[in-house]
Design a protein around this nucleic acid. Structure first.
Lengths: 259, 259
DNA sequence: TCAAAAAACGAACGATCGCTCTATTTTTCT
DNA sequence: AGAAAAATAGAGCGATCGTTCGTTTTTTGA
């Protein structure tokens, strides 16, 4: 409990970044926003984002009409267009904002650790915890990134591979220090990311099974460590951890997936 | 090489099922198809499916217009509607066809094995190999299943959980026989599925890295076995396998995903 | 308090959507 | 070969889409 903080601790650490997100949007999209005063921007931009994520994660961004968004935000059609130049601009805003925010927090946490074992644990745990806090953002990015313009698609791809490289670098660092016994660090990083992504992509499934985010994070970490670590002396202390956990809160955006 | 067949062998085993798929569609959708003669149905239905999958996997099913489909299939607007009653019916056709076909082949292969270790290997390998052969189908189902009617959504969910239960049952069987040392078979099955799905969801990434489907399947199997097996005496024989593989063929439907 | 600035409004426009329906072409069968 | 049946064609319909713009309401600042 002293080395790895629980989800509740993590949650309190990052929820206050709502306004910070708005600033980040304003930096990149100042030209397409005709709102002058920052106070009104802060008030409504988050409302627009929340509504857009809510509707899009239910029926898809393409299927979300501007009238849907107008109804949900209680802003008029014309009023909406003061905050973005068009639907595609809104898509890009959402994706870029999510991307930069997620990467910033992820890097910040990982860079606090030094040895590869701790770094790998922190990277996995932070990614899963963060995707729990920002679940609508993660899910939206996952499902809608492919609908971007070719212009911004490359930018999105770079962001993806960057996150994967974060895992890869840790693994290779651990291998160089003789701690990890993996043969293919590229494939290892890939499957780690696949497991980590599963939490927010299939959020509703785990919620239905009453699996908490702490449980899932610990399971993935133990999974990865059993595969990577040469000696399992490092992974001690996990076995006797209590699996009885906090509340099983409800979540929005339950979707379906196949096979 | 005698126990687990390579992808090339697998491919020749299942490619001849194109007409079989058409029959399966006709069984469920006879009432919404106004085409009388099976010969014309066989000729055009596959063309419609291929075109719909191609366009949808590029821009999404919702964004695909019937005029797009008309152009790609070289059938007129009115002509198309002889093969389905509407766009939503086409969606359901595609999803149901893919679902039943995939499950049929998967079950068939897994049921040929008896001991849990072989069954687990076969389940993973067959799923990955099959998703390579039917990549557009898998990808489409993965991305578009959430846009189904509530009526058919339950049906789709049942199919998903069924595939996951396949993995889970094998794991519990292995645990009962004292072969597997897993604590949580539900979470274990979940992450196996997550790794297995990664192959077709991020197909373009692995293609760009020149990772072959054989390599990926073997990696996932070794990953899972190192996590599940109590003794690794079963997983011998993998280490000395040649990683030099066949051609790296091109694939359609490269898409983007984040983080 | 009262212009000026900012923000919000919502009817209306052109484009495109899924879909229908009649006319036409192709195939089938005696 | 020719009539019946099957399949295809493509213009057109109403609905809905994203977006615009003149107007009204709210906020700001001296």
């Amino acid at each position: 409990m002293e080395d790895l903080t629980s989800f509740e601790v993590f949650k309190q650490q990052v929820t206050l970044s709502q306004q910070e997100i708005c600033r980040e949007v304003f930096k990149y999209h100042r030209k397409t926003i005709s709102i002058k005063k920052e106070k009104t921007l802060d008030k409504n931009l988050m409302r627009i984002f929340d509504a857009a994520l809510k509707i899009s994660n239910q029926k898809g961004f393409k299927a979300m009409s501007m009238r849907d968004l107008s109804r949900e935000t209680k802003l008029s059609m014309g009023g909406l267009y003061a905050y973005f130049s068009g639907k595609e601009d809104l898509l890009e805003m959402l994706l870029r904002t999510g991307r930069t925010t997620i990467r910033r927090i992820l890097r910040m946490h990982v860079d606090q650790e030094n040895d590869p074992v701790s770094r790998l644990r922190t990277a996995i745990q932070t990614h899963i915890f963060l995707s729990e806090v920002l679940q609508p953002w993660f899910y939206f990015s996952y499902m809608e990134a492919r609908h971007l313009n070719p212009t911004y698609k490359a930018e999105a791809k770079a962001g993806e591979l960057g996150t994967e490289k974060l895992f890869m670098d840790i693994i290779e660092q651990g291998r160089a220090q003789g701690l990890f016994g993996v043969r293919d660090s590229v494939l290892t990083a890939s499957v780690i990311k696949a497991m980590v992504q599963d939490w927010y992509v299939k959020r509703w499934k785990y919620a239905g099974r009453q699996v908490t985010v702490d449980q899932y994070a610990w399971f993935v970490i133990s999974c990865v460590e059993r595969f990577c670590l040469i000696k399992d002396s490092h992974s001690l202390g996990w076995n006797e951890f209590s699996w009885i956990n906090d509340s099983n809160e409800e979540r929005t955006g339950g979707s379906s997936w196949p096979f």
